[in-house]
Design a protein around this nucleic acid. Structure first.
Lengths: 113, 113
DNA sequence: GAAACGTGCAACCCGGGGGTTGCACTTCTC
DNA sequence: GAGAAGTGCAACCCCCGGGTTGCACGTTTC
């Protein structure tokens, strides 16, 4: 229910090339500032800032003021949530396939709930 | 590189509430038609069709003509790809954390590549 | 204190994503 | 064959996501 909504938010946050590369860089680089992230990127600092806000809104990133600059760091828990969701879909899919296979192999067997 | 782009496409496809519920239903229900999926949904059949095309474009779904109707079924391989990507980010994040911890605990130790 | 660096805020633009409606076309059913 | 069921196609609408520019505000630095 709300679970699905939250998962959609996380997936939406990851569903953009720029944001995904930001996540990758934060994942391997620790805590970085928006300006640092914007260097080497194809977009402006402001664009990066907006992306970071989206990521933070989805709970994928946390920010911390460090003197005059603001450092953003990854929050990997929500990544686990997303992975859990994918696991769930895959699992129920496997079960559905298994049911189908059983029905084909034993057509007369009564099947309950 | 292109890996990241493909992952972004999958995440984008999953980053919408309607599409995510479609994926869930397909995951637990086997192969369904657009009309069937639209019943019980809050949107039109046409909207569902567009969503299915997006999902198919991302490789998450496959369609098959069955008489006069078209059945859509889940293609769980791409889900695994997405999960693998998340695993990668989490792993490098863990390594980054570990490096950081090591630096804090042994400040004088020389650290190489 | 003045200059440089890093941010924050606001206005603005553009394209396309999500949705709908209407209709023509095939396929099943009686 | 007539009608119902299931799709496909096209036009159309609205909103907002992604991006930019310009400038004002703290914080360092010398």
């Amino acid at each position: 229910m709300g679970r699905e909504q939250a998962a959609a938010e996380v997936f939406f946050a990851l569903g953009d090339g720029t944001r995904l590369s930001v996540v990758t860089r934060l994942g391997s680089g620790g805590a970085l500032s928006a300006t640092t992230l914007s260097q080497g990127a194809k977009v402006t600092r402001q664009a990066i800032v907006k992306h970071l806000q989206v990521l933070e809104g989805a709970g994928l990133v946390r920010h911390e003021k460090r003197g005059r600059e603001v450092l953003y760091a990854l929050e990997p828990e929500r990544l686990d949530d997303a992975r859990t969701f994918l696991d769930g879909v895959s699992a129920s899919w496997d079960r559905a396939i298994e049911r189908l296979r059983a029905m084909v192999e034993e057509p007369d067997k009564p099947r309950g709930r």
